[in-house]
Design a protein around this nucleic acid. Structure first.
Length: 212
DNA sequence: AGCCAGGACTGAG
DNA sequence: CTCAGTCATGGC
């Protein structure tokens, strides 16, 4: 069995189902908002911003576009880079008004990815996160956590290009939305809950000999 | 007190 | 195409 699948099994046995993406309302737009606001930003800060948006009743593409820049920036300020992210949110809101239905229906995930990458503020990780978690399309998300675990525990080069690393994971796994969803969530769970804490002996010892 | 967090854009070479 | 500089907040 290949190391990538083995790592998944160990993480799943240990942590169980993760139920991602973290989302209070169940709204697709909240997932998209989180994906943009979390760019190079701690999730705790994103939660504050999302809380502000919910209180202000600005949690839809329409309401985002109807909110003046200054006001929207104030709401998302806790997530940092608020000037840029204000513009990004509005670009994405306009895009969703135009293309949300088409995205729900299409099964050509690579075409959708290409199209979403044209939106200002949407890079590869953000596009893949939105496709996987907001639209349930089968694509694998590479982020800083994935690179870390790939380097430390799978003996892969963590500095490989995004698309190259993504292909490693996707080729090793069944093209299943549920698996891609769960795997990325498990990687985050491991990196956040174990890497930083001192007592991670049990899971770390299981993971340490994956590639042997 | 600095360093870093679930990146992306831009301009230079 | 690679790479540094830029954007900004809050927690540790």
């Amino acid at each position: 069995m290949n190391p990538i699948r083995k790592l998944f099994d160990i993480l799943f046995d240990y942590y169980g189902p993760q139920k991602w993406w973290p989302c209070q309302t169940g709204l697709r737009w909240e997932i998209i908002t989180g994906a943009i606001l979390t760019q190079n930003t701690a999730w705790t800060n994103v939660e504050k911003a999302i809380g502000n948006l919910l209180v202000a009743d600005v949690m839809s593409p329409e309401s985002v576009l109807a909110t003046p820049d200054e006001q929207l920036q104030e709401l998302i300020r806790p997530a940092g880079f608020f000037t840029q992210k204000c513009a990004y949110l509005k670009a994405m809101a306009a895009f969703m008004l135009e293309r949300e239905v088409a995205f729900e229906q299409s099964t050509d995930v690579w075409a959708l990815r290409r199209e979403m990458l044209a939106v200002k503020g949407v890079g590869r990780e953000t596009a893949d996160s939105i496709l996987l978690y907001a639209f349930n399309k089968p694509i694998f998300v590479i982020d800083a956590y994935t690179r870390r675990i790939a380097e430390r525990h799978l003996h892969l080069d963590g500095t490989l290009h995004y698309d190259t690393l993504q292909k490693f994971f996707m080729d090793a796994l069944l093209p299943d939305v549920a698996i891609f969803n769960e795997y990325h969530a498990l990687i985050v769970a491991f990196c956040k809950e174990s890497c930083h804490k001192s007592g991670c002996g049990e899971i770390c010892s299981k993971i340490s000999d994956i590639a042997i």
